[in-house]
Design a protein around this nucleic acid. Sequence first.
DNA 1: CAGACTGCTGAACATGAGTTCAGCCACCGC
DNA 2: GCGGTGGCTGAACTCATGTTCAGCAGTCTG
Lengths: 241, 241
Amino acid sequence: MSSATASGTASDPTASVPSGAAGPADPDRTARSRIRDAAITRFAADGVAATSVRAIAEEAGVSPPLVMHHFGSKDRLRVACDQHVAALVRERKHEVVAGSSGLDPVAALRTYDEGPPLLAYLARTLIDGSPHVAELVDEMVDDAVAYMAEGEANGMLTPTDDPRGRATVLTLWSLGALVLHDHAQRLLGVDLAGDPARSMDYFLPALDILGRGVITPEAFARIDEGFRNSSDTTTDDEGRA
Amino acid sequence: MSSATASGTASDPTASVPSGAAGPADPDRTARSRIRDAAITRFAADGVAATSVRAIAEEAGVSPPLVMHHFGSKDRLRVACDQHVAALVRERKHEVVAGSSGLDPVAALRTYDEGPPLLAYLARTLIDGSPHVAELVDEMVDDAVAYMAEGEANGMLTPTDDPRGRATVLTLWSLGALVLHDHAQRLLGVDLAGDPARSMDYFLPALDILGRGVITPEAFARIDEGFRNSSDTTTDDEGRA
DNA sequence: CAGACTGCTGAACATGAGTTCAGCCACCGC
DNA sequence: GCGGTGGCTGAACTCATGTTCAGCAGTCTG
């Protein structure tokens, strides 16, 4: 148990067996991995608090006590899910390296089709404070900073006074849209946690915003000046983006 | 009970009594409103599923059965909270009219200091699918479309092919950042669900992105062309923002 | 074949959940 | 004073949850 802390691929033989497109109840996979993936699926769909151990056991096709046998408690199972998802995300990240641009920190994960719903799990657990997921977000910001610095050097991205601030806000926006994928589905008909090919109605406006800007240069200069002035005093009624 | 269905301001005398900065346990307010505000506070802090009726009753300084007496069930209490928050949000929205720009659909709510934590409640319930909150999001998008059309006419905002798409994505980003306010706190030290004056490290990069753009015109033209070509075929490896 | 060990289960336990019920208490019209 | 009424509570009920325990089938070791 303590040997599969970070990777989940090399040391733990039950971790990520890519045996084709194996469903959660595939009897060929070990019960432990089926339970873990079932938990990820249910946590992603209903949230951690609203998911019972019995529901996870049923989804995995095992008995509830087996869940305890393998993971000790629901809370430790949740930690195992966090760690497994974090490991898979890092794995994906390293595979894609820096193929596409770094403006969408979730891009690398969208290529993940088989296996547990990574993006939906992230979207859920981003908001009920797991330290492992928070760590993952920090890494995504770091990656975005690095990618964008590269893009800036390549002349693809505009320079900025505050590269880390810009990368952080863009990461928050991208993850935030992912978290709100239900609303994105309703409003735009896209599936941000699923097939990226069916998310063009999100990506095209996003590209438009990031590429052509939203505020005209004249208005921006005016607002920016007001902002910087109000940030010196204690006035807070001035400019608000 | 049936008289306070939608508004909570005009018909229900216990709804929004602005009696100074009244805490949740202020004995001067009616038990019903104290219970409702206590529920909003606890739902905002811990989520709906993880909050017990007993915890709400304790926060409101009443007994658990009184919660049932006034609201019938936990689920109906949650609906009442949704409706009350939606009513307060609409109230705030109409007060501020269109004073500041429409780029931040949450701006009008940030001025709300006293009373239950509206923004934190929204941040929580945005992700566990309440129809009332979804309706509210739809209205925010509509408002953003209207505000931005006005800004476009005034020459403050750049024109775009897809005004609704742009407004929708910006709304999703703004709300998404709000939902991730814990991460924004950790990464930027800002409090997006609280005092806007202490959120400059978020607003300034956001303004920079929206004002000056992120992608250089040349790179944007290249990516945009690749995007539009790939949207015709079934290729999905081409462009990804 | 005996024994032990692993993977796993059915039944049960304890706790906390949402909810119900009978009844208290202050107030109000008569 | 007095019956009634509405706001409110203590205690209890029912149910689902996380968890435990004794024991099953199969397999490996000797």
